[in-house]
């Protein structure tokens, strides 16, 4: 507290980004068709689970260093799908965990998926394994698990840091088909080098909608694209204003950044 975090401009931007999302969620819920482009990495999710079932090997799904956050919820949509399929195909599912708070939620989601697949008796709470809250202890635990269980497919979804390559190499060494998705751009190159399929940034958020075809998720995905378009528009307008201001400084406009930063007090005291 004590810091002014936001301004009326931020509120307007938030409304601008979320407005299309709400609109398209409503449209999707009314049954209108929403187009989602094909993502090879997401198509590979089903392929990887099927491969594990054919080989009779376990499926592994880790959320890496993800804590309770929007990223975790994006991962849970995919985990739910993977757990459902693994249950239907009678494949063993292993979910190594780093964060105990996330683990409780993960366990609940996996149990629900087994119940939906009418295989609740096959659900083993011990398949959700808490390894460690220390980054490299988690990585070493994960490596050991991959080698001991000889997994057939591994999913690495969520937030990863320096341990990303260690985790992905462990899967590579046991010959697992790996699908990785990270919101941290720094780790994407490591996954591209090591995993069979990599989802980059927002594709992680899109994967759940793509797999489930659930109207709310599809609607919000389409809304996100419009929000991004708005963002690009702002970048273009901002660039044009900046260019104008540098060419004609005597007739300069206030740029968008300045407008967004006007504090709340400017509403009743007047724009400076």
């Amino acid at each position: 507290m004590g810091v002014e975090h936001s301004t009326p401009g931020i509120l307007l931007l938030l409304l601008g980004f979320l407005g299309p999302v709400v609109f398209l969620i409503r449209r999707a819920c009314r049954g209108e068709e929403i187009y989602v482009k094909r993502i090879a990495g997401v198509d590979a999710v089903n392929e990887a689970i099927g491969r594990s079932a054919e080989l009779g090997k376990p499926v592994s799904f880790t959320t890496g260093l993800t804590s309770v956050s929007p990223v975790l919820y994006a991962c849970l949509g995919v985990l739910s799908h993977v757990a459902y399929r693994a249950a239907r195909f009678r494949s063993k599912l292993i979910v190594p965990q780093y964060n105990p708070e996330a683990m409780a939620i993960v366990e609940d989601v996996v149990r629900d998926s087994y119940r939906d697949a009418r295989r609740i008796s096959a659900f083993d709470p011990q398949s959700i394994v808490f390894l460690s809250e220390s980054q490299f202890a988690f990585a070493s635990g994960y490596m050991g698990l991959m080698h001991r269980e000889k997994v057939g497919s591994a999913f690495l979804f969520g937030y990863f840091a320096a341990e990303s390559l260690i985790l992905a190499e462990a899967g590579q060494q046991v010959g697992a088909l790996q699908v990785a998705a990270s919101v941290s751009p720094e780790q994407v190159p490591f996954f591209i080098c090591t995993a069979d399929y990599t989802l980059i940034g927002e594709e992680l958020y899109a994967s759940s909608a793509y797999l489930s075809r659930e109207p709310i998720q599809l609607g919000s995905l389409a809304g996100q694209d419009i929000a991004k378009l708005l963002f690009v528009l702002l970048i273009v307008v901002g660039s044009l204003i900046a260019t104008w201001n540098s060419i004609f400084p005597e007739a300069a406009f206030s740029n968008l950044g300045t407008l967004i930063r006007y504090p709340w007090s400017s509403l009743w005291e007047g724009v400076p």
Binding site: F17, S69, S220
Partner: peptide
């Protein structure tokens, strides 16, 4: 960041939590 914002919005209004156990595409 935009996808995270939208996801946070769905979590806030509990639109997301309901969908895990009711994913139609399964």
């Amino acid at each position: 960041a935009i996808a995270g914002l939208v996801m946070a919005f769905r979590m806030w209004f509990s639109i997301e939590s309901e969908s895990f156990s009711q994913q139609g595409g399964k």
